[in-house]
Design a protein around this nucleic acid. Structure first.
Lengths: 150, 150
DNA sequence: ATTGATCATTTGCCCTGTCAACTGATAGAC
DNA sequence: GTCTATCAGTTGACAGGGCAAATGATCAAT
């Protein structure tokens, strides 16, 4: 076992934390018949509807293909509607979609926040937020740079 | 758009950062014909071989089913060997597996570390590491608690 | 009007990953 | 010795997601 660098250790903890957190969210959302990805898609649609698939894909950072399939499932289950105008499809929540989102939203956000609030005080959260912003912005720039020379 | 709590903002940034980072790693590892998951599996096997599938699954935090499939692919490509003794299978790297791992390892670790080293100094990394440890440990405890009452 | 270029979306093929049901093998209990 | 509980691993059905090739629809130039 080689000795890992500090950044590698941070990376490992972060990946595992995100995995655990997603797992917990999935367990929690199961009672509403939703997955984390679906919950996030519904929440994003509610905030931006009507929205095109391309914009939704960007907002959720998934590929066009991925969003197409997920929306097909959500449509099949009657949670969203896709209205085609011209060449783009505009996505909106159905009654059922809004209903399940409103039932799931509060407890999901609470469950999610608790993971942070239970162990980090306000100051620590501010610090973490600032650090994550730096990392996130940098990773975005790297992704953009990778796009360029392809 | 509701105003999101600080913890939710941190969460979003962290998830997106991990996504971006994984994507960058996948792009990088493509030249070696590996995915991030495969890279991590090979690295883990090298450090602990010979190792059983169950232990490997625990080490990588994936389910037994998931590890079974991934190892089947790695075996098909000749990167690992599975030796069955009694009821358990012991996994080791093949020559080819060790070779590709040793070619990919340095640049992958470097690429990975750069994401942190480029924007965070030593102090910031120590702070982040400490915060992530708290979060990670807490998420582990929560997962354990969820297991209990099922 | 026809031909192309362009953009949104879909689809085939693949990898990752979960869960639950199933197979095989071993170890005890009788 | 047989029967059963248990444990390692596999497999089917599914969701999530990537990439690349194919569709479809619009728009611009001829």
């Amino acid at each position: 076992m080689e000795d890992l660098s500090l950044s590698t250790l941070i990376w490992l903890r972060m990946v595992r934390f995100v995995q655990n957190s997603n797992q917990l969210s999935n367990d929690h959302l199961r009672q509403f018949g939703l997955t984390v990805a679906q919950f996030e898609a519904l929440a994003h649609i509610r905030n931006f509807q009507p929205v095109t698939q391309t914009d939704l894909a960007k907002g959720l950072t998934v590929s066009g293909g991925g969003i197409s399939r997920m929306l097909a499932r959500l449509e099949r289950e009657g949670l969203i509607a896709r209205e085609q105008t011209w060449k783009t499809k505009h996505i909106t929540l159905t009654e059922a979609g809004l209903d399940v989102l409103e039932r799931a939203f509060p407890s999901q956000l609470h469950q999610q926040s608790a993971l942070f609030d239970d162990v980090l005080d306000e100051d620590e959260q501010r610090t973490l937020h600032a650090l994550m912003k730096k990392l996130y912005d940098h990773s975005l720039a790297e992704r953009a740079a990778a796009e360029e020379n392809d």
